[in-house]
Structures are given as structure tokens and as C-alpha cells.
Design a protein around this nucleic acid. Sequence first.
DNA 1: GTGAAAGCGCTAACAC
DNA 2: GTGTTAGCGCTTTCAC
Lengths: 343, 343
Amino acid sequence: MVTLAAVARRAGVSEGTASRVLSRTNSRVPISASTRARVEQAARELDYHPNAAAQALSSGRARALAVVIREQARWRGSRPHHIFSGYNLGEGLSGLQEGTHQAGYRLVLDTVDEEALASPLDLWKSRVVDGVVLWQLAAPEALITAGCPLLSLGVVGPGAWIAADERGAGQVATEHLLSLGHRHIGFVGARVSHYYGSYQRLAGYLAAMRAAGLTPEAAPVEILSEEEGRAAARRLLERRPQLTALVAMNDLLASGSLTAIRELGFRVPEDISLVGIDDQRIAPYLCPPLTTVRMPNYELGQIAAHYIIALVEASSTPGQPEVPPPTLIQRASTAPPLSRQDH
Amino acid sequence: MVTLAAVARRAGVSEGTASRVLSRTNSRVPISASTRARVEQAARELDYHPNAAAQALSSGRARALAVVIREQARWRGSRPHHIFSGYNLGEGLSGLQEGTHQAGYRLVLDTVDEEALASPLDLWKSRVVDGVVLWQLAAPEALITAGCPLLSLGVVGPGAWIAADERGAGQVATEHLLSLGHRHIGFVGARVSHYYGSYQRLAGYLAAMRAAGLTPEAAPVEILSEEEGRAAARRLLERRPQLTALVAMNDLLASGSLTAIRELGFRVPEDISLVGIDDQRIAPYLCPPLTTVRMPNYELGQIAAHYIIALVEASSTPGQPEVPPPTLIQRASTAPPLSRQDH
DNA sequence: GTGAAAGCGCTAACAC
DNA sequence: GTGTTAGCGCTTTCAC
């Protein structure tokens, strides 16, 4: 193993100087250009890689962040699988990894089942990570009282949190239908507990409807499943036959709604238009391909990385960052209303 | 911060003894029950969490593994996204995380763009991780010469590698069609370079066809895209009008094949049956829902964790592990052949 | 600007 | 069985 001492020896300087040249953190001291060059060359020639554990121990910073992901309480086949598979988490993780890597931090992956958030606490207390990013997860009390820098994504605090413009997504979806000429638009998926997005997306829908002077009509859903989406859409369409369009709180519910619409003998988009939110991987494969709203997941990940790193390094709360707006992805599930609405 | 010294003091023992009681690694020495109890209680009372950096520095083991994931060279919208989003990586990561966590190791997430595998090398040389798991990625020469314990998943070595029974998957898919009564079965997706699965799945198809005394008919594909799948399926069906069924090398190609089949005026499954492989998230949403073969991704992840940890701790190659077989997931895209085959 | 030296918290080899 | 002690490789005062 090549140590700092070896580099220092070869460059003809002391360990302290070599450290000052080579480490990002310790560089508040001016160094002469020639010394710097000699040290850097020696490091290169020796293929020096600083020992992360030694750096962490000595500096008190691990230069690592934890991403915590909830284990889904649902099963596929007979094996557990994490929320990984859905919600475009991949995009978010990409962004997080990108931002994290750029800043010279590492990302430690952690998963937790429902409420047992012991493992991120342990990662923090063991100084494995300097901070924690919680994916669609509210900060547990224990982590907060432990003083761990943390950031919840897509969920309201306690503690710092950021989210995409979920309300805007509901609005974008609704306004798209409005601009197509729809006047009787329902919402599938109100009231999913603990999920920030569900509340805000509904709020966006309500705002858009009211701004257009129209009466909103929303059907609640207890959990996020296709089956629930199907049932809710069915109830909505039976209760309000004048509806010509539906906004679904997310693509999964949209998928269920599609089934309900078809079961009632309607065609999409001729009789009923449908918009989802999320632009999940399944969206283009639904029949017809689903018009939906894409959330800035990648960017949210990047922003989260910057935010938590600022929090870790400055131990002062950064300002609320700007998140790019959701965008409409137009596919084949929406069209202008036919005459059905005329009665 | 609560240190080992504090625990030792409170328990009335030396640091060495406390360490022996509390650390998994250092426990080859017998300890009296009463001492052990006293130390454990003291640790509990003080809420002691060993400093990971100090442990790593002192022991020379980080108790961490890297998972390396390739950055996809394709774009979605205008942002990069990783292979995360596809190939049921989520299931595999779950299994990996599970196995890793159980053994008291952590998982460090790393992504690389195509061939630049510098960052896992750096993780290893900096002693951030004790070993590396490469997801659908061949081991780069540099990592091997560096002596890093590593394991490639779903790809043939150099270095250790494990994969699911890809050949079996091809066979299962083909045999399903055979058992339905099909005799003219084509294969979409031969010859995708560098991908172990593509070769083996084709081999499984060929074996099943030959075992049934039938003539195989495979269409090559250059890259894994729906468009390529569509083109290949079209070529195949035009060249061999007697075909009544298709096996696609994976669900993405199956999706493209579905389009081609429909474009040629055939119905699925009445005129043409179609089987995919992977059971990706999109599979149940295709029209009709795709019959496909599920790969044991979760288990593969778990097995990988055990394997690499054995490699790290024993520095001896474990035996080739048993991976559960692929299983057929029957949905609506397959049925017995109609009379078309009779001419 | 640079060197010397004191730890960071833990493990492990060695005594007893 | 348990205590003592010498580091692990780096950062960071404090001198000069």
C-alpha cells in the first residue's frame, strides 16, 4: 500500500505538506507552486490513493451519504422487492449519485422496512455517513434528535425536505384536458395517506378546475394499487356519467382506471380521455399509450445531493432550491371530447 | 461521542477486552460470561456505536462492498438514466442489500459510463470497499490486476462470475410453446454482442427445438431496442409465413415484436403466440399481457452477496453456487395454434 | 510556506 | 481470560 509518507518522502517534503497538497479539505493553506507540482507528481508516479478510513478517522468526516429506501410491503412472486422497481427511483438515484460523486462523496445504499429506521441511525452514529437522504420517507424522530443532517425527498418534514412541484403536476395534467376542450374532468386518487404527492396533485387539479370555473369531482383511494384505481375510476364514472376525462394521481392508478373505463364500455380517448402522472416505465406500454406528466426525478436527485452536502459541510440550512417544473408527455390517451358531453 | 474506552471504563475492563466482546472479527478468544455481560450492558447503557473508520483503519477491512452499475448510453427525455430503470435491477439490488446487510457489510453504490471503470478501482484502492460486484458488467483488467475481490453478475468473466440459468430460460419459453402444440417457432434477438444472456437464451431455444426435432429460425438484432425487435420480428414473419409463435430474447424485444405482429395484420395470441424473457415491469401491461419467463434476480443478488463476502473473508474461491431456475409466467400472449399452421 | 508531532478510535499481538 | 501497548494512515494544530 502506498501511503502519504511514501509520497512525501519521494517529493522531499513532510507528510503535513503532502497532505495539504493532496487533500481537498485541508487546502486552506497556501502552497508554493513548485512544492505542489512535486507532490502531485510523486503521487501520480506512485499511484497514490488516500486511505479513506484514515482520512475519515482523522478528519471526522466520512465523505459519504446514505440513501435510504423503503422496503415495499408488497410482494411480487414470492419475494420481497423494494420501491426500487417503481416510481422512477432509478432516475432519482442517478441524479443523486451524480451530484454526490461530483462533490467527492460516496453513496451508501440502505433499505428499511416500513418504520424500523434503525439502520440509517446506525450508519450515522458509526460515522459511516455524514448525512442521510430519505427517499419518499419522513425523517424518523431518532435521526433528528441524534443531530444527523438529513433530507427527506418527496415527503414533508420534520427536518429538511424537498419535493418536485407535485401541485403543478396536477395542474399541468388538468390544464391539458381543459385545453383540449374537456369540461367534466374527474380525479382518481384523492386521499392517499402520508403521501405528499397525492395531496398536492389533488390540490393542483382542484385549483385548475376552480380557475376554469368548473366543478371538481374526486374519488378517494386507500392504497396505491391498480385495483384501487380501477374501483375508484368506476365509482366516479358511474356517479358522474357526464365525465369525459380523468386525471389519475399516478400512472399506476391510471392503469387501473384504464381497465375500469374499458369495463364500462368506453373507449380511450374517444369517450374518455385519461392523464396520469409520473411517466413511469409502464406508461408508454399501456393501451393506449398513456399521456402523463413527467416529474424531474433526475434533477431532484442532483439537487438533493447538493443540498445535503451543503448541510453537512456548512451545518447551516441552504435556501430552498429551485426544482424544474413537471412536463406533459403527450401520448395517445387524450383527445378532444366527442359529442357525449353535449347532453 | 462514546468511545470504546468509555465502555471499557464503565464495565471495569480494559479496552482490549471490550473490543473482543463487541467486535465480530476479534472474537476468536474466549471471554468469561460475566465480563461479556458487563461489557454488553455498558455498551447498551452508553448507546455505543463503534466508529467505522477506526475499525476499518485498524483492521484493514472496510466491511463494505461496491455495486457497480453501468450508465446506459441511451437517454430518456433529455437526461441520462442508468440501467437502474430496466432489467429488474431493483430486485437484484434488494437481494444484494439483504445478503450484504446480514453479513454486517455495507453497500456502496457506484455507477460508471460504458468503459471508464476508474471509480470502482478507486473505491478499492482507497480501501472504501473490500470487494466489488459488477452488475451486468465484465471485470475490467485493471481491477483484476489490482487484486480486488470481484464478481460479475450475468456476464462471463474474466474473474469470478455468476449468472442465472439463461439457457434454461430460453428452453422454458420454447417448451411452453411446444407444449401448447406449436411446431413453427421463431426466435427474435440472436447475436446481441457482449451479452451473455442473449447467447445462452438462444442456445436454450435451439436445444429445445432440436430436442423436438424441429427447425429453428432465429433473427439477429444489433442492439436491445423495441425498434430492433420490431424489425427482426417482421423479417422473421415475412420470411417464414408458417410461423405460429415467437420467442423473444427479452421483454423489450417482445414489445417490439408485438408491434410487428400487429402491423402484419396478425392477432396475438390467436394467430401468433409470443413469449418474452425477464418479466420486466412492463410485461403485464403490454397488450395482451405478455407471457414471459421470470429470472431469479432477487436470489441472484443474495447469492452474489454471500459469494463475494466469502471471497473477501476467506480469499479462497467458493464453489459455484446454485441459482434457482427461471419460471414461466403465463399471461395472455400465448395460446394453442389455430388452423393456420395446417397448410 | 513548511516541518514536527499529537492524536482520531480501534484492533491485535503479546504478555501474564 | 484479561491487560498492555503499538500501531493503522491521515489531518491538523503549533512552531518557525
